[in-house]
Write a protein that binds this DNA or RNA. Structure first.
Length: 192
DNA sequence: GTGCAGATCCGA
DNA sequence: CGGATCTGCACG
């Protein structure tokens, strides 16, 4: 379990430090887990790409809660995306988990993703990893320190191993489009 | 009430 | 490159 303090920092800091951590989901069907290899930070105070930017709605209210909770939303009517809420209460920070390296529960991931999908594509993309781990909006608001959906320490990487780039698919976000807030493990084949 | 765009994925 | 499929929000 990561200490609460880990989460009570800006999304840009948490996004970097989540790399190499283990995302674990203990579901009724079994346990699946993967190492976080790609993240994106969203900071609502200054970030037009953030769902909570000037927008406190039933869907986004969790982003204004303290860090360490799960923000899960439905995208394009079909896929779930999983975020880690960051920062203290009344900040609008969140970290989108974009890709995992599968670690545990490979068989269950295969069943959830389909028989023809190969290991490399189990968790390469925010929608795919939610499907592989069985994460849905039922986990909206889950406390990542006490619920079946948790994040654990796993591997540590040096700053030189971490790549930085603009975020994906936010062309609408004007100047925020170019913020270098996507973080990933260089040379990891599971990065999207 | 209606219309539309979205932090995606898959298959042609 | 287009279609799937649904929700939140703007508009009126």
């Amino acid at each position: 379990m990561l200490p609460l303090k880990f989460y009570l920092r800006p999304a840009t800091v948490v996004a970097r430090e989540l790399l190499g951590k283990l995302l674990v989901h203990k579901s009724p069907e079994g346990t699946t887990a993967g190492m976080i290899v790609e993240t994106e930070a969203y900071e609502g105070a200054v970030d037009k790409a953030c769902h909570a930017w000037h927008n406190r709605s039933p869907r986004t209210k969790i982003i204004y809660q303290r860090g360490g909770l799960a923000y899960v939303y439905l995208i394009y009517g079909m896929y779930n995306c999983f975020n880690v809420v960051a920062g203290p209460r009344d900040t609008a920070d969140a970290v989108l988990i974009r890709a995992l390296e599968p670690v545990q529960g490979i068989d269950l991931m295969q069943r959830r993703r389909g028989p023809r999908v190969d290991l490399r594509n189990f968790c390469r993309g925010p929608g795919k990893l939610c499907q592989a781990l069985g994460i849905t909006r039922a986990q909206y608001g889950a406390d990542l320190r006490t619920s079946p959906l948790t994040i654990e320490p796993y591997l540590r990487f040096a700053a030189a191993d971490i790549g930085v780039s603009p975020r994906r698919n936010i062309d609408y976000a004007e100047e925020a489009r170019d913020f270098p807030w996507r973080f990933y493990l260089q040379d990891n084949i599971f990065v999207s």
